[in-house]
């Protein structure tokens, strides 16, 4: 049981570090997409490991925390995908240094389908 507790503390620590990095990333990154990446990727892993760590510290709650982790694993990437897609569709252009915009072709074909 002691080992489980230490694993839990380690997971909570990892999660808080990732959440902190995500917060710094939102402040530091230059455009919408980079900020989304910092804000959602970091919080997905951060929140998941934090909640799982709490579950390891209190083994009675482990099943509930696993359900929460699965929910975050489905919902958080999905919402970040939707945010990024709608930002692109509303002409929020990303900062591109090498000139490659892979989504442009797909977006144009979708637009021509709509009209």
């Amino acid at each position: 049981m002691e080992i489980l507790k230490y694993i839990g503390i380690g997971l909570v620590l990892l999660g808080s570090i990732f959440l902190l990095l995500g917060a710094v990333g939102i402040y530091r990154m230059p455009d919408v997409y980079n900020r989304l990446q910092a804000g959602t990727k970091a919080t997905t892993l951060g929140a998941m490991s934090l909640i799982l760590g709490v579950g390891f510290m209190e083994p009675e709650w482990l099943v509930k925390t696993l359900i929460l982790v699965i929910f975050i694993g489905i919902a958080n990437p999905l919402s970040s995908h939707v945010l990024a897609r709608s930002a692109y569709k509303n002409n929020q252009m990303p900062i591109i240094k090498n000139g490659i915009d892979a989504y442009k072709k797909i977006n144009d074909s979708e637009k021509s389908e709509e009209n």
Binding site: F71, I74, A75, L78, H81, V82, R85, K89, E110, E114
Partner: peptide, 18 residues
């Protein structure tokens, strides 16, 4: 609303009952 992506459609189909 505009037509949404397949990811959102599948994801919301999974999440809706819960």
């Amino acid at each position: 609303t505009k037509e949404s992506s397949y990811l959102l459609q599948t994801g919301s189909k999974i999440l809706f009952p819960f």
